[in-house]
Design a protein around this nucleic acid. Structure first.
Lengths: 219, 219
DNA sequence: CGCTATTGAATGAACGTTCAACAAACTTGT
DNA sequence: ACAAGTTTGTTGAACGTTCATTCAATAGCG
Protein backbone atom coordinates (compact mmCIF):
# COMPACT_ATOMS: atom_id res chain seq x y z
CA UNK A 1 0.00 0.00 0.00
CA UNK A 2 2.66 2.56 0.97
CA UNK A 3 4.32 3.29 -2.34
CA UNK A 4 6.36 6.34 -3.29
CA UNK A 5 5.27 9.68 -1.90
CA UNK A 6 2.15 9.45 0.25
CA UNK A 7 0.81 12.53 1.98
CA UNK A 8 -0.61 13.87 5.23
CA UNK A 9 -4.04 12.36 4.57
CA UNK A 10 -4.91 9.85 7.26
CA UNK A 11 -4.97 6.39 5.75
CA UNK A 12 -8.38 5.30 4.43
CA UNK A 13 -8.09 1.89 6.17
CA UNK A 14 -10.91 -0.11 4.59
CA UNK A 15 -12.26 0.02 1.07
CA UNK A 16 -15.65 1.06 2.41
CA UNK A 17 -14.21 3.94 4.42
CA UNK A 18 -12.24 5.20 1.44
CA UNK A 19 -15.32 5.33 -0.69
CA UNK A 20 -17.14 7.43 1.89
CA UNK A 21 -14.57 10.23 1.68
CA UNK A 22 -16.09 13.40 0.31
CA UNK A 23 -15.62 14.48 -3.26
CA UNK A 24 -13.40 17.42 -2.37
CA UNK A 25 -10.91 15.15 -0.64
CA UNK A 26 -10.64 12.87 -3.64
CA UNK A 27 -10.03 15.87 -5.86
CA UNK A 28 -7.25 17.12 -3.61
CA UNK A 29 -5.76 13.65 -3.60
CA UNK A 30 -5.65 13.67 -7.39
CA UNK A 31 -4.22 17.18 -7.47
CA UNK A 32 -1.45 16.10 -5.13
CA UNK A 33 -0.70 13.14 -7.34
CA UNK A 34 -0.56 15.55 -10.27
CA UNK A 35 1.95 17.76 -8.48
CA UNK A 36 4.05 14.70 -7.70
CA UNK A 37 4.04 13.62 -11.31
CA UNK A 38 4.81 17.09 -12.65
CA UNK A 39 7.74 17.37 -10.24
CA UNK A 40 9.08 13.92 -10.96
CA UNK A 41 8.44 13.54 -14.69
CA UNK A 42 7.73 17.03 -15.99
CA UNK A 43 4.73 18.35 -17.88
CA UNK A 44 5.15 16.47 -21.12
CA UNK A 45 5.61 13.08 -19.46
CA UNK A 46 2.74 13.48 -17.01
CA UNK A 47 -0.08 11.19 -18.10
CA UNK A 48 -3.45 10.52 -16.55
CA UNK A 49 -2.29 6.97 -15.91
CA UNK A 50 0.61 8.35 -13.84
CA UNK A 51 -1.74 10.51 -11.82
CA UNK A 52 -4.21 7.69 -11.24
CA UNK A 53 -1.44 5.28 -10.24
CA UNK A 54 0.07 7.91 -7.95
CA UNK A 55 -3.25 8.25 -6.16
CA UNK A 56 -3.70 4.48 -6.10
CA UNK A 57 -6.87 4.62 -8.18
CA UNK A 58 -7.96 3.39 -11.55
CA UNK A 59 -7.58 4.80 -15.04
CA UNK A 60 -10.87 6.49 -15.71
CA UNK A 61 -11.01 8.29 -12.39
CA UNK A 62 -9.62 11.65 -13.44
CA UNK A 63 -12.16 12.19 -16.19
CA UNK A 64 -14.90 11.48 -13.70
CA UNK A 65 -13.69 14.12 -11.21
CA UNK A 66 -12.17 16.69 -13.58
CA UNK A 67 -13.78 15.95 -16.97
CA UNK A 68 -10.49 16.42 -18.83
CA UNK A 69 -6.74 16.48 -18.42
CA UNK A 70 -6.63 20.16 -19.25
CA UNK A 71 -9.11 20.88 -16.50
CA UNK A 72 -7.08 18.86 -13.99
CA UNK A 73 -4.02 20.93 -14.76
CA UNK A 74 -5.97 24.18 -14.52
CA UNK A 75 -7.26 23.15 -11.09
CA UNK A 76 -3.75 22.20 -10.05
CA UNK A 77 -2.35 25.60 -10.98
CA UNK A 78 -5.22 27.24 -9.13
CA UNK A 79 -4.57 25.10 -6.06
CA UNK A 80 -0.91 26.14 -5.95
CA UNK A 81 -1.70 29.78 -6.55
CA UNK A 82 -4.39 29.90 -3.84
CA UNK A 83 -2.05 28.29 -1.33
CA UNK A 84 0.67 30.74 -2.21
CA UNK A 85 -1.51 33.83 -1.92
CA UNK A 86 -3.16 32.70 1.31
CA UNK A 87 0.26 32.05 2.82
CA UNK A 88 1.87 35.42 2.24
CA UNK A 89 -1.26 37.33 3.14
CA UNK A 90 -1.56 35.45 6.44
CA UNK A 91 2.13 35.96 7.19
CA UNK A 92 1.90 39.70 6.57
CA UNK A 93 -1.20 39.98 8.72
CA UNK A 94 0.50 38.20 11.60
CA UNK A 95 3.62 40.38 11.43
CA UNK A 96 4.17 43.58 13.44
CA UNK A 97 2.83 46.69 11.71
CA UNK A 98 6.14 48.54 11.32
CA UNK A 99 7.64 48.79 7.86
CA UNK A 100 10.67 46.60 8.48
CA UNK A 101 8.57 43.75 9.89
CA UNK A 102 6.07 43.97 7.06
CA UNK A 103 8.79 43.86 4.45
CA UNK A 104 10.51 40.98 6.19
CA UNK A 105 7.21 39.12 6.35
CA UNK A 106 6.62 39.57 2.62
CA UNK A 107 9.98 38.18 1.57
CA UNK A 108 10.19 35.35 4.09
CA UNK A 109 6.67 34.21 3.27
CA UNK A 110 7.82 33.36 -0.24
CA UNK A 111 10.57 31.20 1.17
CA UNK A 112 8.31 29.51 3.68
CA UNK A 113 8.92 25.84 4.32
CA UNK A 114 5.39 24.95 3.30
CA UNK A 115 5.39 26.85 -0.01
CA UNK A 116 8.93 26.51 -1.09
CA UNK A 117 9.38 22.78 -1.53
CA UNK A 118 11.23 21.39 -4.47
CA UNK A 119 8.11 19.46 -5.37
CA UNK A 120 5.81 22.46 -5.57
CA UNK A 121 8.34 24.72 -7.27
CA UNK A 122 8.99 22.16 -9.96
CA UNK A 123 5.28 21.67 -10.56
CA UNK A 124 4.63 25.40 -10.64
CA UNK A 125 7.33 26.11 -13.20
CA UNK A 126 6.32 23.16 -15.33
CA UNK A 127 2.79 24.53 -15.43
CA UNK A 128 3.47 28.19 -16.11
CA UNK A 129 6.18 27.48 -18.67
CA UNK A 130 3.75 25.34 -20.60
CA UNK A 131 0.65 27.34 -19.88
CA UNK A 132 2.03 30.56 -21.27
CA UNK A 133 0.03 30.20 -24.45
CA UNK A 134 -3.25 29.31 -22.69
CA UNK A 135 -5.04 32.52 -21.67
CA UNK A 136 -6.71 31.00 -18.60
CA UNK A 137 -3.45 30.10 -16.85
CA UNK A 138 -1.91 33.34 -17.95
CA UNK A 139 -4.55 35.32 -16.14
CA UNK A 140 -3.96 33.38 -12.95
CA UNK A 141 -0.21 33.96 -13.06
CA UNK A 142 -0.78 37.65 -13.66
CA UNK A 143 -3.24 37.94 -10.81
CA UNK A 144 -0.87 36.16 -8.47
CA UNK A 145 1.86 38.67 -9.25
CA UNK A 146 -0.27 41.76 -9.29
CA UNK A 147 -1.47 41.54 -5.68
CA UNK A 148 1.93 40.74 -4.27
CA UNK A 149 3.71 43.40 -6.27
CA UNK A 150 1.36 46.23 -5.46
CA UNK A 151 1.67 45.45 -1.75
CA UNK A 152 5.44 45.32 -2.04
CA UNK A 153 5.50 48.65 -3.86
CA UNK A 154 3.47 50.33 -1.12
CA UNK A 155 5.88 49.10 1.53
CA UNK A 156 8.87 50.31 -0.47
CA UNK A 157 7.31 53.75 -0.75
CA UNK A 158 6.82 53.87 2.99
CA UNK A 159 10.36 52.70 3.65
CA UNK A 160 11.71 55.36 1.34
CA UNK A 161 10.02 58.11 3.31
CA UNK A 162 11.06 56.69 6.65
CA UNK A 163 14.67 56.02 5.73
CA UNK A 164 15.12 58.94 3.35
CA UNK A 165 16.46 56.58 0.68
CA UNK A 166 17.37 57.68 -2.84
CA UNK A 167 15.92 54.70 -4.74
CA UNK A 168 12.85 54.63 -6.94
CA UNK A 169 10.32 52.58 -4.95
CA UNK A 170 8.72 50.99 -8.00
CA UNK A 171 12.05 49.79 -9.37
CA UNK A 172 13.08 48.54 -5.96
CA UNK A 173 9.90 46.54 -5.54
CA UNK A 174 10.29 45.11 -9.03
CA UNK A 175 13.88 44.19 -8.30
CA UNK A 176 13.03 42.44 -5.05
CA UNK A 177 10.24 40.45 -6.61
CA UNK A 178 12.35 39.51 -9.59
CA UNK A 179 15.08 38.38 -7.22
CA UNK A 180 12.67 36.10 -5.43
CA UNK A 181 11.46 34.55 -8.64
CA UNK A 182 15.03 34.06 -9.71
CA UNK A 183 15.84 32.33 -6.45
CA UNK A 184 12.84 30.07 -6.91
CA UNK A 185 14.12 29.18 -10.32
CA UNK A 186 17.52 28.27 -8.87
CA UNK A 187 15.97 26.13 -6.17
CA UNK A 188 13.78 24.44 -8.75
CA UNK A 189 16.69 23.70 -11.07
CA UNK A 190 19.32 22.75 -8.53
CA UNK A 191 17.15 21.21 -5.84
CA UNK A 192 19.90 19.53 -3.94
CA UNK A 193 22.55 22.16 -4.70
CA UNK A 194 20.64 25.26 -3.64
CA UNK A 195 18.58 25.14 -0.49
CA UNK A 196 15.94 27.36 1.03
CA UNK A 197 18.30 28.53 3.75
CA UNK A 198 20.84 29.78 1.20
CA UNK A 199 18.17 31.73 -0.65
CA UNK A 200 16.95 33.20 2.61
CA UNK A 201 20.48 34.37 3.39
CA UNK A 202 20.75 36.12 0.04
CA UNK A 203 17.42 37.86 0.52
CA UNK A 204 18.25 39.07 4.04
CA UNK A 205 21.68 40.36 2.99
CA UNK A 206 20.05 42.22 0.12
CA UNK A 207 17.49 43.84 2.42
CA UNK A 208 20.37 45.08 4.60
CA UNK A 209 22.04 46.61 1.54
CA UNK A 210 18.94 48.28 0.12
CA UNK A 211 17.33 49.36 3.41
CA UNK A 212 20.26 50.07 5.76
CA UNK A 213 18.10 52.23 8.05
CA UNK A 214 15.62 49.39 8.58
CA UNK A 215 17.87 46.33 8.68
CA UNK A 216 21.23 46.06 10.42
CA UNK A 217 23.92 43.64 9.36
CA UNK A 218 24.09 40.99 12.07
CA UNK A 219 26.63 38.33 11.37
CA UNK B 1 6.32 30.48 -49.46
CA UNK B 2 6.49 33.23 -46.86
CA UNK B 3 4.45 31.75 -44.04
CA UNK B 4 4.52 32.71 -40.37
CA UNK B 5 7.91 33.56 -38.96
CA UNK B 6 10.72 33.16 -41.47
CA UNK B 7 14.26 34.10 -40.54
CA UNK B 8 17.36 35.95 -41.61
CA UNK B 9 18.50 33.11 -43.89
CA UNK B 10 18.65 34.32 -47.46
CA UNK B 11 15.99 32.56 -49.50
CA UNK B 12 17.16 29.35 -51.19
CA UNK B 13 15.71 30.44 -54.58
CA UNK B 14 15.64 27.21 -56.59
CA UNK B 15 15.14 23.66 -55.39
CA UNK B 16 18.60 22.75 -56.65
CA UNK B 17 20.27 25.61 -54.79
CA UNK B 18 18.50 24.69 -51.60
CA UNK B 19 19.73 21.14 -51.80
CA UNK B 20 23.31 22.30 -52.12
CA UNK B 21 23.23 24.10 -48.78
CA UNK B 22 25.62 22.54 -46.31
CA UNK B 23 24.48 20.21 -43.56
CA UNK B 24 25.19 22.68 -40.77
CA UNK B 25 22.85 25.23 -42.31
CA UNK B 26 20.03 22.76 -42.57
CA UNK B 27 20.54 21.85 -38.92
CA UNK B 28 20.39 25.48 -37.85
CA UNK B 29 17.28 25.93 -39.93
CA UNK B 30 15.63 23.08 -38.09
CA UNK B 31 16.79 24.38 -34.71
CA UNK B 32 15.25 27.76 -35.52
CA UNK B 33 12.00 26.10 -36.47
CA UNK B 34 12.15 24.25 -33.16
CA UNK B 35 12.59 27.50 -31.22
CA UNK B 36 9.64 28.97 -33.10
CA UNK B 37 7.45 26.02 -32.26
CA UNK B 38 8.51 25.95 -28.60
CA UNK B 39 7.74 29.65 -28.31
CA UNK B 40 4.42 29.44 -30.09
CA UNK B 41 3.05 26.12 -28.91
CA UNK B 42 5.11 25.16 -25.87
CA UNK B 43 7.11 22.03 -25.20
CA UNK B 44 4.31 19.51 -24.95
CA UNK B 45 2.63 20.60 -28.19
CA UNK B 46 5.83 20.79 -30.21
CA UNK B 47 5.85 17.90 -32.66
CA UNK B 48 8.36 16.92 -35.30
CA UNK B 49 5.69 17.62 -37.90
CA UNK B 50 5.47 21.22 -36.62
CA UNK B 51 9.21 21.62 -36.85
CA UNK B 52 9.39 20.15 -40.34
CA UNK B 53 6.48 22.28 -41.54
CA UNK B 54 8.05 25.37 -39.94
CA UNK B 55 11.23 24.72 -41.89
CA UNK B 56 9.25 23.97 -45.05
CA UNK B 57 10.57 20.42 -45.25
CA UNK B 58 9.12 16.96 -45.07
CA UNK B 59 8.25 14.70 -42.15
CA UNK B 60 11.21 12.39 -41.91
CA UNK B 61 13.80 15.14 -42.14
CA UNK B 62 14.47 15.65 -38.43
CA UNK B 63 15.33 12.04 -37.77
CA UNK B 64 17.78 12.18 -40.64
CA UNK B 65 19.64 15.21 -39.26
CA UNK B 66 19.21 14.69 -35.53
CA UNK B 67 18.41 10.98 -35.15
CA UNK B 68 15.70 11.62 -32.55
CA UNK B 69 13.41 14.26 -31.15
CA UNK B 70 15.25 14.23 -27.85
CA UNK B 71 18.50 14.91 -29.62
CA UNK B 72 16.98 17.81 -31.54
CA UNK B 73 15.86 19.40 -28.28
CA UNK B 74 19.27 18.83 -26.69
CA UNK B 75 20.94 20.54 -29.65
CA UNK B 76 18.45 23.40 -29.42
CA UNK B 77 19.21 24.00 -25.77
CA UNK B 78 22.92 23.88 -26.53
CA UNK B 79 22.46 26.37 -29.38
CA UNK B 80 20.72 28.87 -27.11
CA UNK B 81 23.22 28.41 -24.33
CA UNK B 82 26.22 28.86 -26.63
CA UNK B 83 24.74 32.01 -28.11
CA UNK B 84 24.06 33.36 -24.63
CA UNK B 85 27.54 32.66 -23.29
CA UNK B 86 29.30 33.98 -26.38
CA UNK B 87 27.25 37.17 -26.16
CA UNK B 88 28.01 38.19 -22.60
CA UNK B 89 31.66 37.22 -22.85
CA UNK B 90 32.08 39.34 -25.98
CA UNK B 91 30.26 42.26 -24.39
CA UNK B 92 32.45 42.13 -21.29
CA UNK B 93 35.60 41.93 -23.39
CA UNK B 94 34.58 44.97 -25.42
CA UNK B 95 33.79 47.06 -22.33
CA UNK B 96 36.25 49.37 -20.55
CA UNK B 97 38.32 47.61 -17.89
CA UNK B 98 37.11 49.60 -14.88
CA UNK B 99 34.81 47.87 -12.42
CA UNK B 100 31.71 49.94 -13.13
CA UNK B 101 31.94 49.36 -16.88
CA UNK B 102 32.53 45.64 -16.46
CA UNK B 103 29.56 45.28 -14.15
CA UNK B 104 27.38 47.31 -16.48
CA UNK B 105 28.48 45.16 -19.40
CA UNK B 106 27.58 41.95 -17.55
CA UNK B 107 24.07 43.04 -16.71
CA UNK B 108 23.22 44.74 -19.99
CA UNK B 109 24.52 41.77 -22.00
CA UNK B 110 21.75 39.64 -20.53
CA UNK B 111 19.19 42.15 -21.70
CA UNK B 112 20.69 42.47 -25.14
CA UNK B 113 18.28 42.84 -28.03
CA UNK B 114 19.66 39.76 -29.73
CA UNK B 115 19.45 37.45 -26.71
CA UNK B 116 16.44 38.75 -24.97
CA UNK B 117 13.65 38.18 -27.47
CA UNK B 118 10.31 36.84 -26.41
CA UNK B 119 10.83 33.96 -28.78
CA UNK B 120 14.12 32.80 -27.32
CA UNK B 121 13.12 33.35 -23.71
CA UNK B 122 9.96 31.32 -24.18
CA UNK B 123 11.89 28.50 -25.83
CA UNK B 124 14.59 28.55 -23.15
CA UNK B 125 12.14 28.33 -20.27
CA UNK B 126 10.10 25.64 -21.99
CA UNK B 127 13.26 23.58 -22.36
CA UNK B 128 14.77 23.98 -18.91
CA UNK B 129 11.45 23.58 -17.12
CA UNK B 130 10.94 20.30 -18.88
CA UNK B 131 14.56 19.24 -18.95
CA UNK B 132 14.99 19.43 -15.20
CA UNK B 133 14.77 15.68 -14.86
CA UNK B 134 17.13 14.90 -17.75
CA UNK B 135 20.75 15.02 -16.51
CA UNK B 136 22.20 16.18 -19.83
CA UNK B 137 20.22 19.41 -19.99
CA UNK B 138 20.72 19.93 -16.30
CA UNK B 139 24.47 19.98 -16.73
CA UNK B 140 24.22 22.56 -19.49
CA UNK B 141 22.04 24.85 -17.41
CA UNK B 142 24.44 24.54 -14.49
CA UNK B 143 27.46 25.26 -16.66
CA UNK B 144 25.77 28.32 -18.14
CA UNK B 145 25.17 29.70 -14.68
CA UNK B 146 28.48 28.77 -13.16
CA UNK B 147 30.66 30.79 -15.54
CA UNK B 148 28.50 33.88 -15.39
CA UNK B 149 28.11 33.79 -11.63
CA UNK B 150 31.77 33.34 -10.81
CA UNK B 151 32.65 36.30 -13.03
CA UNK B 152 29.94 38.38 -11.40
CA UNK B 153 31.19 37.47 -7.93
CA UNK B 154 34.73 38.56 -8.75
CA UNK B 155 33.50 41.93 -9.95
CA UNK B 156 31.40 42.38 -6.81
CA UNK B 157 34.45 41.67 -4.66
CA UNK B 158 36.43 44.29 -6.54
CA UNK B 159 33.63 46.81 -6.26
CA UNK B 160 33.40 46.23 -2.53
CA UNK B 161 37.06 47.07 -2.04
CA UNK B 162 36.88 50.12 -4.27
CA UNK B 163 33.69 51.52 -2.82
CA UNK B 164 34.17 50.34 0.76
CA UNK B 165 30.71 48.78 0.74
CA UNK B 166 29.30 46.77 3.63
CA UNK B 167 27.63 44.00 1.58
CA UNK B 168 28.70 40.39 1.26
CA UNK B 169 29.96 40.11 -2.35
CA UNK B 170 28.76 36.55 -2.81
CA UNK B 171 25.24 37.36 -1.69
CA UNK B 172 25.21 40.48 -3.83
CA UNK B 173 26.26 38.58 -6.92
CA UNK B 174 23.65 35.91 -6.24
CA UNK B 175 21.00 38.58 -5.76
CA UNK B 176 21.87 40.35 -9.01
CA UNK B 177 21.83 37.16 -11.01
CA UNK B 178 18.59 36.00 -9.44
CA UNK B 179 17.09 39.38 -10.27
CA UNK B 180 18.03 38.98 -13.91
CA UNK B 181 16.53 35.53 -14.12
CA UNK B 182 13.39 36.84 -12.47
CA UNK B 183 13.17 39.65 -15.02
CA UNK B 184 13.58 37.13 -17.84
CA UNK B 185 10.74 35.17 -16.37
CA UNK B 186 8.53 38.26 -16.34
CA UNK B 187 9.38 39.10 -19.92
CA UNK B 188 8.70 35.51 -20.94
CA UNK B 189 5.34 35.40 -19.20
CA UNK B 190 4.06 38.87 -20.02
CA UNK B 191 5.69 39.42 -23.38
CA UNK B 192 3.62 42.39 -24.41
CA UNK B 193 3.17 43.77 -20.88
CA UNK B 194 6.80 43.83 -19.78
CA UNK B 195 9.41 45.00 -22.23
CA UNK B 196 13.18 44.83 -22.34
CA UNK B 197 13.49 48.55 -21.71
CA UNK B 198 11.49 48.30 -18.47
CA UNK B 199 13.69 45.49 -17.22
CA UNK B 200 16.79 47.47 -18.12
CA UNK B 201 15.48 50.41 -16.09
CA UNK B 202 14.97 48.21 -13.04
CA UNK B 203 18.48 46.77 -13.33
CA UNK B 204 20.15 50.17 -13.68
CA UNK B 205 18.23 51.62 -10.75
CA UNK B 206 19.24 48.65 -8.65
CA UNK B 207 22.90 49.06 -9.53
CA UNK B 208 22.68 52.69 -8.39
CA UNK B 209 21.22 51.55 -5.07
CA UNK B 210 23.71 48.78 -4.40
CA UNK B 211 26.84 50.47 -5.79
CA UNK B 212 26.32 54.20 -5.09
CA UNK B 213 30.06 54.94 -5.42
CA UNK B 214 30.17 53.44 -8.92
CA UNK B 215 26.84 54.51 -10.37
CA UNK B 216 25.19 57.88 -9.99
CA UNK B 217 21.45 58.45 -10.23
CA UNK B 218 20.86 60.33 -13.49
CA UNK B 219 17.24 61.04 -14.16
C1' DC C 1 26.80 4.99 -61.40
C1' DG C 2 27.65 5.43 -56.48
C1' DC C 3 26.45 8.89 -52.82
C1' DT C 4 23.88 11.83 -50.13
C1' DA C 5 19.82 14.32 -48.99
C1' DT C 6 14.89 14.19 -49.08
C1' DT C 7 10.28 12.55 -49.33
C1' DG C 8 5.96 10.55 -47.79
C1' DA C 9 3.65 6.51 -46.59
C1' DA C 10 3.58 2.67 -43.18
C1' DT C 11 4.10 1.08 -38.47
C1' DG C 12 3.43 0.61 -33.87
C1' DA C 13 3.26 2.52 -29.40
C1' DA C 14 1.23 5.79 -26.10
C1' DC C 15 -2.35 8.35 -24.52
C1' DG C 16 -6.96 10.84 -23.53
C1' DT C 17 -11.54 9.82 -23.50
C1' DT C 18 -15.76 7.02 -23.41
C1' DC C 19 -18.65 3.69 -21.57
C1' DA C 20 -20.87 -0.47 -19.95
C1' DA C 21 -20.65 -3.02 -15.84
C1' DC C 22 -20.27 -3.13 -11.02
C1' DA C 23 -20.45 -1.84 -6.02
C1' DA C 24 -21.29 0.79 -2.16
C1' DA C 25 -24.18 4.24 -0.03
C1' DC C 26 -28.40 6.54 0.40
C1' DT C 27 -33.84 6.72 -0.16
C1' DT C 28 -38.26 5.11 -0.19
C1' DG C 29 -42.21 2.15 0.68
C1' DT C 30 -44.25 -0.95 3.60
C1' DA D 1 -36.51 -2.67 10.35
C1' DC D 2 -35.71 -4.31 5.93
C1' DA D 3 -36.24 -5.16 0.99
C1' DA D 4 -36.30 -2.84 -3.41
C1' DG D 5 -34.90 0.91 -6.03
C1' DT D 6 -32.01 4.94 -6.98
C1' DT D 7 -27.98 7.58 -6.92
C1' DT D 8 -23.09 8.10 -6.76
C1' DG D 9 -18.30 6.59 -7.16
C1' DT D 10 -15.22 3.44 -9.34
C1' DT D 11 -13.27 0.20 -12.49
C1' DG D 12 -10.92 -1.50 -16.59
C1' DA D 13 -11.41 -2.58 -21.25
C1' DA D 14 -12.19 -0.60 -25.89
C1' DC D 15 -11.73 3.10 -29.22
C1' DG D 16 -9.82 6.51 -32.00
C1' DT D 17 -6.28 9.79 -32.43
C1' DT D 18 -1.74 11.58 -32.44
C1' DC D 19 2.91 11.16 -32.87
C1' DA D 20 7.98 9.52 -33.28
C1' DT D 21 10.33 6.49 -35.93
C1' DT D 22 11.44 3.54 -39.90
C1' DC D 23 12.19 2.70 -44.56
C1' DA D 24 11.73 1.91 -49.45
C1' DA D 25 11.58 4.92 -53.30
C1' DT D 26 13.31 9.12 -55.53
C1' DA D 27 16.09 12.86 -57.10
C1' DG D 28 20.05 15.80 -57.43
C1' DC D 29 25.17 15.72 -57.45
C1' DG D 30 30.06 14.49 -58.61
Amino acid sequence: MSEGHEHENSAPATEAARRREPKALRREQLINATIDSLAKRGYAATTLADVADGAGLSRGIVNFHFASKENLLAETIRFLQDEYTANWQATVKKAAPDTASQLLAMVTADLDKKICTHRKLAAWFALIAEARSKPAYHEMAWERDAKYRSTLTSICKLAKEEGDYAFDPQSTADAIYAMQEGLWLRMMLFGRGYKREAALGVVLDTLCTIFPMHFAIDK
